[in-house]
Amino acid sequence: MTSPKDNQTAKPVCFQDVILRLQSYWAAQGCAVLQPYDMEVGAGTFHPATTLRSLGARPWAAAYVQPSRRPTDGRYGENPNRLQHYYQYQVIIKPSPPNLQELYLGSLAAIGLDPMIHDVRFVEDDWESPTLGAWGLGWEVWCDGMEVSQFTYFQQVGGHDCRPVSGELTYGLERLAMYVLGVEHVMDMPFNPPGSPIPLSYGDVFRQAEREYSRWNFEQADTGMLLQHFKDAEAECDRILTAAETDSAGRRIPMAHPAYDQAIKASHLFNLLDARGVISVTERQAYIGRVRALAKRCADLFVTTEAATLQAEDAA
């Protein structure tokens, strides 16, 4: 591991600088730098690179930015810290290396947070995702009293015990960058370097979209259509999972990934319905349970498919 000191260079100057530094830091640690998943998700954890790849026995190391949507957090772009669309930076390594905490601290140094000047603390925070049937133990990481990341050792995903255990790091990029850059309102944060020919702030990029999505999320989204789409996604997921394992050419191809896409879809549709306020407290648990049931079955299929592939590889 490189000591935090070695990484100390000039501080980042803009949002994308923070992202680029994280990308190159984790690339240097050997992670595959993936791209965001091309679907609407509530958190980086939903990316199959985390959810599905934390299952089974194959080693894995990936890092990526994931745009995340939380319709209920929309504030029309007015709240300095809250957004309905924001970015998470996600790192997932399986099995979790023994020096994961040091690696993580190195990443903070890489974006200009020197742990010799700041107060970095690991404060108990157990993570649970009822929709994914997943939980883990870990911490929220505090820097000078502010939560800058979530650090989790996955214990279960999709109802399966994780063996080996994956270590997951999630950075809330806007909040972290605002702190590093000393910005009070997210919309004021420079997105590209302020000295660029066309300097752009976060607000230049997202303010209008935040306003529009807030209105749509809270007032306009067609709840009848969303409910129907939820049912469709659920039905399609079930159909994919129960389809014959062999294709028309007789090849054995179970379809965990396409099925999981439908589970992701159902989860996001649920979030939208929640923001529209049409789901009562009692119904809420039932919806979450329905998504979890899908996620679990996708996990089951992924695990059996991987086991079969490993067996075939061994035999070869």
Binding site: P95, P97, P98, G136, L137, Y153, Q155, P164, V165, G167
Partner: peptide, 8 residues
């Protein structure tokens, strides 16, 4: 009260 596994 709660314990965990890690790595392999």
């Amino acid at each position: 009260p709660k314990s965990m596994r890690w790595g392999s």
